[in-house]
């Protein structure tokens, strides 16, 4: 591609794209090594070419580009061999064809980020069906693949205004299926990272659709067993919402209290962390609405026999801003916690 005269460049580019539609079996790592190397080199050239040349992306190339990408990335993901796969403990199954797949993703990203990229042309090919297939790939066990998918979907969401509502709706469906049906989806954290940037960019006043997403999806997400894998991203989304619209605070706090873990202390520590993040941004006028039910729960945590839970709850008093809120409202807060504090100071084993 580098040496080709400009007149022949587009034809050559087209041929290389078609060449890269050939798929190889990486499970048999000795099979067809020569062919694999030819494709790897061709993909490298394509990445280089789109990344460095201007005026390359002419309209007729768009369908060829999308076809090559689709043929390579859209596939049925292998079933997780270990049904008891614990994302926190076990090593994920990495994608065997990664040597090629990575370059296809890299090429796709360069294509989307090229100054010559035209969404008006690309939207014929990057449509709702394409996006649905892309979202399915977020269930891949390979974190490297999910990282690329996250960046790609973030760019697609940004550049294709007509797809935004559809993407939000499909993410909704993935989360709801995850919460209420399968409790198994590998890309929840990545999707929440994208949603964090979307929430951050919401216009005010918030649309009802967005508030419903908080109430119907983000809060119930706290009830899932594998919360620890995506809690940081989930808490970030919740806090983004409250910074956008503080009137949602009461609903969020009551939702967390409703889903408060009863038997998983690790989750309880996460919930306390999230509560502190919320209190860090809370308006005093909102604090007074939830102080009593909230500090009744904090008091229960202080009395927890699990010392990490008790410690994390007591740690609220190390936060200057929370301290000032409690001081301003000690007539309401003190009665809910003092009895427990006194009892714990005498009886707690640790």
């Amino acid at each position: 591609l580098k040496e080709a005269p400009v007149s022949e460049l587009h034809d050559l580019l087209c041929k290389k794209l078609q060449q890269c539609c050939i798929l190889f079996d990486f499970l048999d790592c000795v099979a067809d090594l020569k062919g694999k190397e030819i494709k790897r080199a061709a993909l490298n050239e394509l990445v280089e070419c789109v990344a460095t040349n201007r005026g390359i992306l002419i309209e007729p190339l768009y369908p060829e580009i999308i076809k090559m990408i689709s043929v390579n990335i859209f596939r049925t993901l292998p079933p997780s061999e270990n049904p008891e796969f614990d994302p926190e403990e076990d090593e994920p199954n990495l994608e065997p064809s990664w040597p090629h797949l990575q370059l296809v993703y890299e090429f796709f990203l360069r294509f989307l980020e090229s100054p010559d990229f035209q969404p008006t042309v690309a939207k014929r090919y990057i449509d709702q069906k394409f996006v649905l297939l892309l979202l399915d790939l977020f269930d891949s066990e390979d974190p490297r693949e999910r990282e690329y998918l996250k960046t790609i979907l973030h760019r697609v969401y940004g550049k294709f205004l007509g797809l935004r509502a559809y993407i939000r709706k499909q993410c909704n469906n993935i989360f709801l299926r995850f919460i209420y049906e399968t409790e198994h989806f590998n890309g929840v954290a990545e999707l929440l990272e994208i949603l964090g940037s979307i929430i951050n960019g919401f216009a005010l006043p918030l649309k009802t659709e967005h508030k419903q997403f908080l109430v119907r999806v983000l809060i119930p997400l706290h009830s899932v067993k594998s919360l620890s894998i995506f809690h940081a991203q989930l808490a970030y989304c919740v806090v983004q919402f409250l910074e956008k619209d503080a009137t949602l605070t009461e609903h969020v706090i009551r939702g967390l209290l409703k889903y408060w873990p009863k038997t998983c202390t690790q989750k309880e520590v996460m919930f306390l962390g999230e509560i502190e993040e919320i209190l860090d941004v809370i308006e005093p006028s909102q604090f007074v609405k939830i102080q009593e039910p909230l500090f009744r729960q904090v008091a229960r945590c202080i009395a927890s026999p699990h010392f990490q839970v008790a410690e994390r709850a007591l740690y609220f008093w190390n936060n200057e801003y929370i301290l000032s809120l409690v001081e301003d409202n000690c007539h309401a807060v003190l009665p809910t916690v003092f009895g427990t504090l006194y009892h714990v100071s005498k009886e707690h084993w640790n």
Partner: peptide
Amino acid sequence: PQKKKKPKLPKSPAPHFAMPPIHEDHLEKI
């Protein structure tokens, strides 16, 4: 004397995974 209220903490820095915000656009299809 009126106790000076402690100011709210400055906005905590975005976590490492935060991605650039995408601003909602009124042209988006509902």
